[in-house]
Design a protein around this nucleic acid. Structure first.
Length: 104
DNA sequence: CGTATGACGAGCC
DNA sequence: AGGCTCGCCATAC
């Protein structure tokens, strides 16, 4: 299942770092599979151990159609890990962006 | 098996 | 800069 691959990769994202959907898709060898990544994370159960909050869109923004409350939660979780959001609610991917498993 | 959908992304207006 | 459309991939029906 593609989900498993995605989950395992997301679980490798270190604290204080974030990755984009498209980035993860490329790491899995699917340059255009960003939507699939979102699909996988969407299917995640509530009590999951996967740090889904460290996954943002290509602009370093939080995408959450489940409501503004969830967005605030994700943002709070990240800020607690040291990730900084600017005034427009964006994360500096050049600073907090995860380069991949190789970085570890 | 064909169609529709979605935590996306890049391009166009 | 902001919003809309089209393209891509895997899954659900």
């Amino acid at each position: 299942m593609v989900f498993e691959r995605i989950y395992r990769l997301v679980e490798r994202i270190p604290r204080g770092k974030v990755a984009s959907y498209g980035q993860i898709a490329r790491m899995l060898g699917q340059p255009h599979g960003a939507r699939t990544v979102g699909w996988a994370l969407r299917a995640l159960p509530d009590g999951t151990t996967v740090p889904w909050h460290r996954v943002l869109n290509s602009q370093g923004r939080i995408s959450a159609p489940w409501g503004p409350a969830a967005v605030a939660l994700q943002r709070a979780l990240l800020e607690e890990e040291g990730v900084v959001f600017d005034d427009t609610g964006r994360v500096d991917l050049t600073r907090f962006g995860w380069a991949g498993p190789e970085e570890e």
